[in-house]
């Protein structure tokens, strides 16, 4: 009897075990999300496309543009999960990158899986260019450099020469603006251009003659202090110390 029990118990347990095992349905691994961006590549470049880093955890796409391609429009080709759609669709240009860099703009892609689930990715674009560095025009906050435009002259002008580093040689990517104390910007200043534009020096020219209707001159007539700001492709820098520009009638 003892022997029988000793044998029967584990056998019974074993049978129960096997029996219960055969009854078990294995839960399959959950499928991966079907509303994903699998690949994001910029194709309006010669040679290899520029691939964006797609991050599913924070639903972002980070694109690093090379400095020298000077792209102001990009054409992304987007691959999404099977059966999913993306809006804006693959091949839709992202235009006016200077506006994106200088003013900021939301760039979003909505991916919809075939069962209707949506996920919104945010596109971030940066350019791998060095930071802008500018020497101050005024030595310090107490010693403010002054410039004068004498409108009684036949022709009068001032040159604002910014020295530093990191300026783009392509002046189509560059703006020099004067910023008022309240943070508002005057219209972009005309810049002098040569065929060997200097990447460590930029010169803005403000010129006037009697009766000139220039918007900048009109704004400068209100007097006050201005800080020089430079936009160069994806970067922006503003001088810490202001300068004084006086318009004499």
């Amino acid at each position: 009897m003892k022997t029988t029990l000793q044998l029967a118990a584990p056998l019974l347990a074993l049978c129960m075990g096997i029996f219960s095992c055969t009854k078990t349905d294995t839960v399959p691994a959950p499928p991966e999300a079907a509303n994903r961006i699998l690949e994001f590549r910029i194709v309006n470049v010669t040679g290899d496309p520029i691939y964006g880093a797609v991050n599913d955890e924070d639903s972002s796409i980070q694109v690093y543009l090379p400095y020298d391609k000077q792209l102001v429009i990009i054409e992304p080709e987007i691959t999404v999960s099977e059966g999913a759609t993306v809006t804006p669709e693959s091949g839709t240009m992202v235009e006016d990158l200077l506006d994106y860099f200088w003013k900021g703009r939301d760039l979003r892609y909505v991916v919809k899986s075939k069962d209707g689930a949506t996920r919104t990715y945010t596109l971030h674009i940066s350019v791998q260019q060095p930071d802008l560095y500018m020497e101050e025009l005024s030595p310090d906050a107490e010693n403010i450099t002054g410039y004068e435009l004498d409108l009684s002259q036949i022709y009068t002008n001032i040159f604002l020469v910014a020295r530093g580093s990191g300026f783009s040689e392509n002046h189509e990517l560059v703006r020099m603006v004067l910023v008022k104390d309240d943070g508002t910007e005057l219209p972009p200043l005309p810049m002098s251009v040569t065929n060997t534009n200097n990447i460590s020096e930029l010169t803005a020219v403000i010129s006037a003659y009697p009766g000139s209707m220039d918007e900048t001159i009109a704004a400068l007539k209100t007097g006050g202090l201005y800080r020089l700001r430079i936009y160069s492709y994806s970067k922006v820098s503003t001088m810490h110390h202001p300068i004084r520009i006086t318009v004499k009638n």
Binding site: L12, S20, T24, A29
Partner: peptide
């Protein structure tokens, strides 16, 4: 041992592949 086998087997029911 038998119980262990049994429970182990049962536990498998809640596991994912």
């Amino acid at each position: 041992f038998a119980a262990l086998l049994f429970f182990a087997a049962c536990k498998k029911e809640t596991e994912h592949a």
